[in-house]
Amino acid sequence: MSDLLLDVRGLVKEFPVEGSKDVVHAVSSVDLSVQRGETLGLVGESGCGKTTMGRLVLRLIDPTAGSVIINGQDLGSLSREKLRKVRSTMQIIFQNPFASLNPRMSVEEILMRPMRIHLRIAGAERSKRVDELLEKVGLRPEHRSRYPHEFSGGQRQRIAIARALAVEPAFLVLDEPTSALDVSVQAQILNLLRRLQQDLGLTYLFISHDLSAVRHMSDRIAVMYLGKVVELADSETLFAAPKHPYTRALMSSIPVTNPRLRRERVRLTGDIPSPINLPSGCAFRTRCPWAEQRCTREEPALLDERDADREHLVACHFVDQIVSSEAPTP
């Protein structure tokens, strides 16, 4: 198990609701692992807890329960000082490059600051590395003295990537890294992220609501719904043979860029329930066309339902019946 980079066990995060005893169940007992050099995709709709997961994994927020183990170290057991050191090995890219870069710092300052904090290298060396970083992300040396407002959204995201790489991390959390960008620019950034992964042997946790981007980037994909992982498989298997009814609905909802393939959708009725009052039993049952009595009473466990030699985890009582049937019309 030496190639395990990230191991998440029983992770729970509840946020208090102001002025009440209620809590928001953002993440409810999630287990995940990421191998070194792999990209794990985390996909789901708004409110599913995927962004909270990213924050928890880096310990930018403290979990209510459970543990995050990176490189064999349990982040919860580390002192502040030790945690700060471990942080240089893990970085995050945010969705909005207009908000994640300090507008009053030049590109040079933005890139040198993390080096000054985390790396013990001389000023001249830092300055030299700025040029290397800019080249790595497809920017030019003359960009170093400019300020964020002088760049387009795509270029800003390149700067954010360069900043993350400045401390030579092994692991990046990519939280909707291209959602704020135009498609033609999104493709540039996805290509860049892939090339960097190949060149530098990086490990990614790729968080997105965009299934096609997740499929493109990920080796394995975890589908989240209301704070839980409902299905997890390698991306080929997941797209070829999704088993959880939510995954199936999600996939048939993606607009496909082929007008001849206007498919019959697995139509989901209704909206995502509130994460404050989770439904009893299976959280998806309120929208599931296959839901039965048992789903109300009993929460399905995430079990291996593989058909081939590769892991395929699904949390559904009726996997076998559902896979071989069409959705009943609501």
């Binding site: 996805l190 290509n191 299934l211 499929r215 496909v256």
Partner: peptide, 13 residues
């Protein structure tokens, strides 16, 4: 646009 039908290594940006 990344395709959900087939996986390509590089996108034509």
């Amino acid at each position: 646009i990344p395709s959900i039908e087939e996986k390509v290594e590089w996108l034509q940006a």
